[in-house]
Nucleic acid binder design. Structure first.
Lengths: 112, 112
DNA sequence: CTATAATGATCTACAAATAAACCATAAAGT
DNA sequence: ACTTTATGGTTTATTTGTAGATCATTATAG
């Protein structure tokens, strides 16, 4: 059962989300799309689009990414084929790493 | 009332989310954190962390960003001060753009 | 100035995501 | 080999985000 949490977010997350939302709003206006149009194309409500553009952290990441794609904001500064390549590389690295992390006693701060 | 939607996501969003999740998992293992530890630090359940690392699009963007910050995955390839600068620039641009978009008749495909 | 339309905000009902508990499997360390 | 622990997948209860509607405000175009 989900206990009633007032989730706390770091400033880093807040700023990152505000930036993403801002970039989306700028891109939408540059392309002269109304909020209504983009919301319909993304299959979401106008209210949700507003919250996304305002950097609200309590939104589905899928909705945010869809909107970004629609208005032309690139995630990871990359197009789809580049994303795919990076994904494959990440999966390769994951293969080389241990499947599970044995953490005897305390946490090891291994910043490489 | 939210009608029962089977939301559809573009391949771009799916790949981007899978990549972000993968980067998070790689970073977590490189730092030798167990899923349990990261989940606790982020204030989320282990199950949610699993879905995030699997690239599930139906997660709060706030939770995803928090986890990324904890394991050291940089959003927009930038630290906090850089994010802040970019955010300010974006807000400046927003000031110069029209407050509302008048879209007579049909959509204008203005890809600059 | 006037009219039209976009934006922003609020509210409610409901569908959906989450926390927590479980279990089974796999993998790491001894 | 054995033991222990991390992981992955379930299931259930409950919180919470979302759609949709409405209203007020703002701003654009004529």
């Amino acid at each position: 059962m989900p206990k009633s949490i007032t989730r706390t977010y770091s400033r880093y997350s807040q700023t990152a989300s505000a930036l993403l939302g801002g970039l989306i709003r700028v891109a939408r206006k540059k392309r002269k799309f109304t909020a209504q149009e983009v919301a319909e194309r993304a299959g979401i409500s106008r209210g949700l689009l507003q919250r996304i553009e305002n950097g609200n952290l309590k939104c589905e990441i899928g909705a945010v990414f869809e909107v970004a794609a629609i208005v032309g904001v690139k995630l990871f500064d990359a197009d789809h084929s580049t994303l795919t390549k990076q994904l494959h590389r990440t999966e390769e690295v994951l293969e080389l790493l241990p499947k599970s992390v044995r953490n005897k006693s305390k946490a090891v701060h291994d910043d490489f």
